[in-house]
């Protein structure tokens, strides 16, 4: 059996560009490949991928495999596993990285079982063990209550990485790399699913994942009216409103506002946590925030262990005064 070498990044695309997660993975992959003294390659799968290979090279790839076929326009498990098997056969990587996205979460485990190897999903940290040269994969387990470090000695080692945990390289358009076209050669009879429709959720204002400021509320907000106050503050700070699970379950806010292990992952400059206790499962969705500010009446609440600044008191009294004062200060 040939030796497995190098790091391969599965690059997702978005609106004819590399998705943010793809650039983050290339940044992380570059470091792993350098630590191994090996090559970093990328794979682009889709339809009409035009100049994206160049972009992947600018972000750090030495080689880009391009599988461009109209049948690959939509992600489907069967077709993508099939073409990834081909690319892996050609590239023989030691490591494959994917994003912890709706595609990566589906593709990584199915591909791992197909290739009779192992995967770790939702990793926060990846490193090469200096002695064994194996990839060490750190991920939250038990709903964020603990972190686990896994490894495996079957190749390729596969991992998905959570959004915003890795930093992209500054793109360098002068970087040189090789582009390899791979024929999809799909047999349509082996694709057992069909995508009938794709529905994009409408978002008003700033997208939660992109917001620099997130104002988040928990069970203690008590209802939709309370969230209107959070909305007011968020709007003033050009931010977005998030929530823990209970407000979403109770339909005080849309399900898409949920931040946490089972919801969205955000890493804003400022995270204002109002009347939420800071459960592990929620924190694993916002622990990447640069500054956390907490308002909670329970001085023992876990959120005060996570926050940089805190206010112990009733949010109903504190929040309007906080918003008012900020408005004043920001107008100066």
């Amino acid at each position: 059996m040939a030796e497995n070498k190098g790091v391969l990044i599965f690059c997702e695309t978005k609106e004819d560009k590399l998705a943010a997660i793809a650039t983050e993975l290339l940044g992380c992959g570059r470091k792993l490949a350098d630590d191994l003294g090996q090559e970093l390659s990328a794979v682009l799968v889709g339809s009409g991928l035009s100049d994206l290979a160049k972009e992947a090279i600018a972000y750090g790839a030495d080689k880009v495999y391009v599988v461009d076929d109209p049948q690959l326009k939509d992600y489907q498990t069967d077709s993508y596993v099939s073409v990834m098997e081909k690319v892996v056969g050609q590239a023989m990587p030691q490591i494959i990285l994917l994003g912890q996205t709706s595609i990566g979460r589906d593709l990584a485990p199915r591909l791992a079982f197909h290739l009779k190897t192992a995967a770790s999903l939702g990793c926060l940290e990846l490193a090469i063990d200096p002695r064994s040269k194996l990839m060490l994969q750190t991920k939250p387990v038990y709903g964020g209550n603990a972190l686990a470090v896994f490894t495996a000695d079957s190749f390729p080692q596969i991992a998905t990485v959570r959004a915003k945990t890795m930093t992209p390289l500054e793109p360098d358009p002068s970087r040189k790399g090789e582009v390899v076209k791979v024929d999809a050669a799909l047999d349509p009879s082996t694709i057992r699913t069909k995508v009938l429709e794709k529905v994009a959720e409408k978002v008003e204002g700033i997208k939660l994942e992109d917001a620099e400021v997130v104002v988040s509320g928990g069970r203690g907000i008590g209802g939709a009216e309370g969230f209107a106050q959070l909305e007011e503050l968020a709007k003033m700070l050009k931010g977005a409103v998030g929530a823990t699970r209970p407000p979403c379950d109770n339909e005080w806010v849309p399900a898409g506002a949920q931040i946490g292990l089972t919801g969205k992952i955000v890493a804003p400059e400022l995270y204002i946590a109002v009347a939420l206790s800071g459960s592990s499962q929620h924190m694993s969705g916002c622990s990447g925030a640069k500054t956390i500010v907490a308002i909670n009446k329970d001085s023992e609440a876990n959120i005060f262990r996570e926050a940089r600044f805190g206010l112990v008191g009733d949010w109903k009294k504190a929040l309007p005064a906080f918003t008012e004062k900020l408005k004043e200060l920001l107008a100066e």
Partner: peptide, 14 residues
Amino acid sequence: SPEEAAANLAAKLR
């Protein structure tokens, strides 16, 4: 009061 603390918090962040 919570209101005063809130104003102080806003000033601190600034």
